[in-house]
Design a protein around this nucleic acid. Sequence first.
RNA 1: GGGGAGGUUCCCGAGUGGUCAAAGGGGGCAGACUGUAAAUCUGUUGCUUCGGCUUCGAAGGUUCAAAUCCUUCUCUCCCCA
Length: 411
Amino acid sequence: MSDALDVLKQRGFFKQCTDEPGLRAKLAEGPQKFYIGLDPTGPSLHIGHLVPIYASAHLQKAGHQPIILMGGGTARIGDPSGKTEMRQMISYEQIDKNIASQKPQIAKLIDFDSTNALLANNADWLAPLNYIDFLRDIGRHFSVNRMLTFEAYKQRLEKGLSFIEFNYQLLQSYDFLELFRRKNCILQIGGDDQWGNIVAGMELIRRVESAETYGLTFPLVTRSDGKKMGKTEKGALFLDPSLTSVYDFYQYWRNVPDADVERFFLTFTFLPVEECRNLGAAEGSDINKSKERLAYEVTALLHGEKEAVKARDGAKAAFSGGGDKTGIPSEKIGKTELEAGINILDLFSRTSLCASKSEARRLVLQGGARVNNVKIEDVEAFIDMTDAVDGELMLKAGKKRFFRIELTDRE
RNA sequence: GGGGAGGUUCCCGAGUGGUCAAAGGGGGCAGACUGUAAAUCUGUUGCUUCGGCUUCGAAGGUUCAAAUCCUUCUCUCCCCA
């Protein structure tokens, strides 16, 4: 149990920590409760949300007890940390829906069955709050002067900061206090952008409860190429397969920059540290094998092995031919429709490969469109049954975007 | 409440009556090079039945013609109270 912190350090989940020796000793004493905060602002988690959950999973494996705090109350406010824009306000009803759909996603990494993990919602104590009482009991412990020295607020002072956002720190601190009181939660962990809020919570607990608690942050995960983690051209990489297909999810990891392989293995899989290092150390085309493994491991973890195999085989089939193609994004088209012939632009623009006909036109003109690996450069071209191979059309846009058209007898 | 500055295409940001679907950069897409990597270079980047159509916070108005001028509204930021 004493190695919980070491695990986090080894795997790159350690940026800074308050009173490290103290925390180490506390964790060595026995199972401790800790929490992370998640914002249920969307119906699905995306990769960006995952790092704290992975960190929690490691601590849980080390015997500690995670509390996953859904910010059902705070989701209605904006967190000023780093963000430039205020968040949209959403209804409690929507938030509850989001929580319901996010929980199973969290459960992929956190074991809720063993009863030592807990899902909480801060709306439980934030919603009934009385403004006057809150100001008197909690607000008085916060110094505006001190808050203004926090980096998060400094930045926002340039761009503008609403009072409601300014209050975020108080609410988050209050969360920590409530969890300490209700569950004896003694540790809050989070991304490094949460450092200020975490420390503020600890200070609050120290003042009103005269108790010592701890905070730990991990580095914000970035990509070596500077792109936002988990962001694709189309937006965030969601865990919900209806928002991001398993195939696309797999491909995201498959195409990660070389320099990130080791770190991503450490962060997003549970493979032994030694193995992660070896896989990340591979060079040349070997690192490609590592990426295949990375993609498979992460996909299997979050979507299940069956889906991962399908995505992996689908990708293999698309890139090197043969094999099981069912994992590739696809759509059905009736044979009779194809018999009549479909214009190449119409064909591409009705798939997810092209958003509009203009885009399809561009693609064709630039030589990026292929049907069953035959380059089509004529925008007037018609595709019909004679182009089908094995009862399907494999569309390819550019070098690595595929789409499969399945031909069916019925319309 | 008073005064000032602004809201431009995915983002940043030019544009102040026609030559503006709108500079430049970022991002995206495509091509070359590769390893389904990175870096680099090139092209491209509103929609379209290819006739046009819709875009510059919103609604009106002036004009042959507006992102550009006028009016009202709305939102943001700054200064004063």
